[in-house]
Structures are given as C-alpha cells and as structure tokens.
Design a protein around this nucleic acid. Sequence first.
DNA 1: AAGACCACCTTCTGATCCCA
DNA 2: TGGGATCAGAAGGTGGTCTT
Length: 448
Amino acid sequence: MHERYCSIDWRKCRLEHRVKDAMRRFIWYRLSANSPLTADGNFKLLMSNQDVLERHPFPWSAEACLAILGGFQAKRDIFLVFRVFYRWASLKKIAGFTREISSFLDDIAAPEAESYKSVKLRNSVFTAAEESLFVAALENTADDSSYFAFRDNVMVHLNWELGLRTEQVAGVDGNHLVEVVGPNGVSYFHLKIIRLKQRSYKSSYRNRVVSEVLAKKLKNLIALRVKNFGAEVEELPLFVDSGNRRVSGELIRNAIVWMCQQAKLSPGTSTFLRHNMAQKLADQGTPGDLISDMLDHTTKIAARYYVQATPAIAKIKARALGKNATYKELMSLMTGALVHRHDATDSATIVRGVVATRYIGNIGVCGLDVDTACSKNPIYSCYTCRKFQPFINGEHDNVIAALRSEVQLMLDQSLDLGENKVVLQLEKTIEHASDILERCKAHIEGSH
DNA sequence: AAGACCACCTTCTGATCCCA
DNA sequence: TGGGATCAGAAGGTGGTCTT
C-alpha cells in the first residue's frame, strides 16, 4: 500500500567495525519489529550523523555520550534514535554498551518537539474567487466518456468534498457506495471510507455522506469500470491505473495538481484541500470538535489550531481589504459622518460603555433620540451602526486594544472551542474600529 | 507518456505520563 | 481526573530520475 521503499546501504557507513556491526543488528531488529519506513528513517539519521559519532572513540563513556548528544544538529529525532539504539545494544549485551550508561541516557530529557508550529501559522486557503474557479473546473472536466480522465475528476472531487487523505481515496472499492432510499422516495448516499492512523477503532471503515452530484459521478464511474473490465470488478478497487492496480497516492496528487492547472490556480495537494476545508469551516464558526470529526482526527488538538488561526486570518484580510478603495467606500457607509467632540451639543448623546474590563467614554455620539434605549450592544455594535457618529479625536485605539485583549483572553482560557463564534464577532468589530481609526487619522492629516 | 522509485522533509497519531 | 505534554512511530509532500 505504501509507495516508499527502504534504501539501507551499509557502504554509506564509515564508522569503525564494532559500532557498524551493532548498528547493522539494530537496523535488522527495527526491520523485523517496526515498519520499513521506521528502520529506513533510523538508518538515515544514524548515517547522517556519522561525523559526530566518529569524533568520539568507541566505547563511549557517559561524558562522551553527552558530547555526542550535544553535537547532533537535528536535535530531537537523532537524540531519540541514538538513545533507542544504545538501549537496545546494552540489552543485547553488545560489548562496549553498558546498562549504566543506558539508564544515564534514559534520565536525560529529549529536546522538545515543535509540534503543529506551522499549522498555527497556516493561512493559505482558497479565496472565494479561487474556490469558484476550482469548482468550475470540477464541473467542466467531468467527462465520463473515458475511464482514466473521469477517474481523475472523481478522485479530486472526493478529496475536495470530504477532505480525505490520498490513501483513503485510493482505498475506495466499487461496492463502497451505499444508496439509502428515504421514506419520501429521495435517495441519500454514503461512502465507506477507510480509517487511517487510528489503531483504537474496531471497525476499519466509517460511513461518510456524499453529495448527490458526487454520488452520481461515483455511480457513473462504477458503471464505466464494469463496462471496461466486467461485472466482477465491483468488489475491486474503484480507482485503478492502466495496469488495473489500485492507484497510488502519487496518481491522486497528480490529479489534484492537474485540476488546479485546469482552474488556472497554483498547484494544490490533498492536504491543502483538507486544510482548506477545515479552515473554511473554522472561519464560519464551526466548533473544533466537529472539524476534527470531519477530518477523521481522533483528538481536537489539530482542529484547535485551525480555530486559533482564524482571527489571524481575519487581520490579514482586514489589512488587504484596507488597501482596496471599494472596500473603504463600503466601510464609510457603515457609520455616520465623523464629528468633533466639541460639536456634540447634548452630552447625553455621547456613547459610553465598558469594553472587556475597560470603561470607554469618548468615542462618538449616538444619533438616536436621547430617551430611546439602544436595542443593540453599545460600543460593540456602534462601529457598524449608521446612527453612530465617531469623534475625530475619539479613543478608538483604546477600544481596539480592549477588544484585542478580550480576544486573547478567550483564546487563552477557552477550552470549549464552540465559543469560536464570539471570537469571530470580536475580530469583525476590531476590523471596523480599525477602519474608523484610519479614517480619523486621514481626516486629521488632510486638515493640516 | 505514464507511472514507479528515490532522498529528504513536514505533519499527525495513539499511548502513556504528569499534574493542578 | 481529565486535559496537556511527551514519546515513538507512521503518514503525507516535493521535486526529481528511472523504467516500461
């Protein structure tokens, strides 16, 4: 099922024979006990750090081991592999490796992993325009006259709609599409999708609902495959290559790249489509646990980063939009005209309120009659209200700072990701307040 | 030309430990 | 006592070359 292979070549090893022999036995053990990829990865890490090992004559003392660990460049991974190697060798009683030094190594904390570092910063998702181009390409290339072209289209559609990993797409068989006819005669479709990376589940498949359009495509593709290869292929892989073997992840990736070319977009990947789906859901305020469920994650950890990334994206969008003349015009229509504080004749109309834990009393006047209670949520709602006339020298920056600290507080304390919607709302208010601030600054500069 | 193979790199998971 | 951190392992992605 996997597309990568080991390339363990001991000619690459220039270490002295005792260390080399121990490593050979260790890698052999890893091959028998773990996946080939793991053994291969361990071998590569050890080989790429030979110069560090060479610097310290074997057998290594505890001090030498410390020096070796300190000399490793790609800290964490090689640290763990070296320790596992040493532990194994000492358990096998290989000469030169001692139990004492092994337990000494066990007491050293491994360098920290920087998990999910880049997920947090990820903000490359399709814009609305790109998304419509992509969807249009999915429609335009859905030509079911030949199996292979249509196969690529359906694979990409599947990836797009369900946010699957490539291996899950490859794992679809002809009999995995299930049609359920409802009481009113309407059909619903679900597809059996294989689970990956989830050792705790008893069932290796899970049902995912697919859209009518996709179900239709799948049905057509199954029919096409049966026509080409005979009825018995219904039980077999749905997506196959020219040699009638299940497609590799690479073919699926190529299909996605090809689809992006059709849509005149920069090349995408299956992970990109997954992230795009997850981030769009998060942007709409979808709770993190729902996102992790849709992505087939077993924990909320990864989904949390999509949710946390959302306000950052909102800021970037705000900055980009701020440069756009049309957007500025739209924003200026949202609130009333700018006024000077000394022009406010009736002090009762001045807006006052609390943002986060901060009292704000100098941002503008409200156009409502003095004895009319505002039905909205003053200060929070003012910046998008037509009745609101901002002060040119108002403390809009204080409002923004207070709102920002409120957002930060929510992100820091919020364990329930369902509160994400509130964060989005706050970010929107920050955007509008920032715009007012900009307009006030421009007004002041213009009058000098 | 399609797709297999390769080296190197990034991202995500499940089990277990740890602690307020 | 449940969520976060850690650990060891396994999956995906990139940009090539090789094979059929």
